[in-house]
């Protein structure tokens, strides 16, 4: 059970990105940044890590001639995050 604790979500920022994307469909970079209160560089490095794991997908588009990047969790990411949550809960239940 403890094995299900996902190392990818150990970082506070990655955990935050996944939490936000789990309950929102396509969220843009700046909205995520405002919610998590992190810097551009910090957020983008974590997002790249999540993308490499195939947990989130990226969409780039132009809105009013300005580039806008949005993110969404993939099926894989959704499953990984749910398993992680379940593992956390199980761990806590056993300890209590």
């Amino acid at each position: 059970m403890i094995n299900n604790i996902n190392k990818a979500f150990e970082s506070r920022v990655r955990l935050g990105v996944m939490s936000v994307l789990m309950v929102n469909d396509w969220m843009d970079f700046n909205s995520v940044k405002d919610l998590l209160e992190v810097t551009d560089g910090n957020l983008s490095s974590h997002i790249t890590a999540l993308e490499k794991l195939n947990y989130i997908e990226i969409r780039k588009e132009f809105v009013a001639k300005r580039p806008k990047t949005s993110y969404r969790v993939t099926q894989e990411g959704r499953k990984a995050f749910s398993d992680h949550l379940l593992a956390l809960e199980n761990l806590l239940n056993r300890l209590n």
Binding site: G16, S19, V23, L85, L88, L92
Partner: peptide, 21 residues
């Protein structure tokens, strides 16, 4: 470690709430 897991869950919950409602 127990405490940090509780904090993690609390933060996930808060972020989900704040971002969707």
């Amino acid at each position: 470690e127990n405490k940090s897991h509780i904090e993690q869950l609390a933060e996930i919950r808060s972020l989900m709430e704040r971002s969707s409602r």
